[in-house]
Amino acid sequence: MKKTKLLKGKEGLGLLVGIIVLFIFMSIFADNFLSLYNMHNLLKDTSILLIVAVGMTLVILVARIDMSVGSTMSLTAIVTTILLRDGTHIVPAIIAGILCGVLIGLLNGYLVGVQKLNHWVTTFATLSLGKGLALVICDGQIINANSDHLKAIGHNSSVFLGLHVFIWIAAAIFVFMLYVLNKTKFGYKLYSVGGSEQTATLAGMKTSTSYISVYIISGVLASIAGILLASKANNGNATIGDGYEFNAIATVLIGGTPFAGGRGGLTGTLLGAVLISTLKNGLRFIGITPSLQFVIIGVVILIVIIVDVVFNERRKLEEIRRVEQ
């Protein structure tokens, strides 16, 4: 018991050290990286990634995956901006956008939770479905929202108590989900379903509702992130959320929630989000071309995943040994 607690502390410490090293490295090699303006920007980027990654954490906690978050972001951005362009009020436009996330989450949840289809391929299919619908709706064009309200959310000047609105939204979502996951029945259920679906079923839980609700939460959070992304530029296009699924998965894995499910939590995800956004922001600052950034981040994510898998195998072996003793 003591050993596992110590290990947990070490894992978080390793992440912190990683972030600090990255910060020192970047501030040496990139001018203006440590400026107040860039730090604020970095936090803004972190908040969008964090919102998506919080949903992904819940999905990975129940040993599933959600590949469709990126396309949900794009679809939401397109739907919201198109409604705003056509003169709808901002509130129904945002509700319609979030509804897209609910629907995609419901579809994912039904197929994975009730029909028990392979979660990788199902969410991959909804990824292409969502992105395809976004392409069809916007006709392959960039949609200019032309909305002062949307602009007001994402504009640089919309600060509250010194911090940007994005950061407050992300913080609120994070704290709320932290409460849900650690202090409510629902959160406990997720951990037990992720630990072993069979055991949870035998204990009398209805696992399918856990899967459905987790996917809906992930879809809704992706939608919120999509709206924030759209508000940043005051327009939407069908590729706005591309690649976010990978960044979110990497964030969650770095944060210490393994694919196997049942372990980990949101605090690690927060540190992971800071690490990934720092890396992205710093690479941009050093002046590396976008396609090479793509490669570097891809390699980092692959390494993270391999390390996760190797650690998990070792842990399993250790557990077997403990049981045998």
Partner: peptide, 16 residues
């Protein structure tokens, strides 16, 4: 432009 959406639906239905 419909292509991608259609193939997403096909995969879901084929799996079902």
């Amino acid at each position: 432009l419909w292509q991608q959406a259609v193939f997403g639906i096909i995969i879901i239905f084929a799996a079902l």
